[in-house]
Design a protein around this nucleic acid. Structure first.
Lengths: 110, 110
DNA sequence: CAGGTTTATCGTAAATCGACGATTGACGCT
DNA sequence: AGCGTCAATCGTCGATTTACGATAAACCTG
């Protein structure tokens, strides 16, 4: 049994765009806020690119302290854009494709 | 000669998506930040819908004080998403379609 | 089980945001 | 000239963001 990705398994379905406009505004605002910082955009891109997980390699890629990166990850997770799973001593983050798709749909609908 | 829209005339061309990734991250983050608040999303939608201008009618549409709306408009303008022109005693805001298109392109490219 | 890694959390400080009321500025009208 | 209207700006407040170092928690490895 290979020690393959213990991460990113289920892949939630894409949530629907809210019918209520003001609710759609809030959802879009929440997602936009999560990407309102270059570092978080960079993190999301990293995770999309290595489509799957990645760990604190993220820290190596960014000119930020480990604790700061952790904070950004927390915000991305709170917004539902990424998911993190514990893999032994390290933690594996991955994109939540449904959330990204929702974001794209909301932006497209502007 | 009708007293038609003194607003939204030139319509700048859509700026290109930056080739440099970290620059693209910054641009995307700036635009996302501008939409990181439900009120600003609502304002942008209002302007898109009445495709063209609109004045302080925006204030009537939102449950916010006039000064607060003005602040949000200022942020949207600073991000380049909207443009405002003085039309006599009132001010006419309108969408900057190129900036919205750029935003959509950047999000799509995630 | 002791030690080393990895990551999250805490505490802190500076900066920015979000909202409001009050004021100022610009303009058209009478 | 003076008045009313519309919108931007100012000043203020509390809350949030961003960043960091230091600490704590979880977990392999020897």
């Amino acid at each position: 049994m290979p020690k393959t990705a213990p991460c990113c398994p289920p892949a939630e379905p894409t949530p629907p765009v809210p019918a209520d406009e003001s609710e759609a505004n809030e959802v879009l605002a929440r997602l936009a806020k999560a990407l309102a910082h270059p570092a978080r955009v960079a993190i999301l891109r990293l995770l999309v690119r290595h489509e799957g997980c990645i760990v604190g390699d993220i820290v190596d890629e960014l000119p930020l302290a480990q604790s700061t990166v952790s904070q950004h990850l927390k915000q991305l997770k709170a917004a539902g854009l990424i998911r993190g799973e514990v893999d032994g001593p390290r933690v594996c983050y991955c994109v939540e494709p449904g959330a990204v798709a929702l974001f794209k749909a909301l932006v497209e609908g502007l």
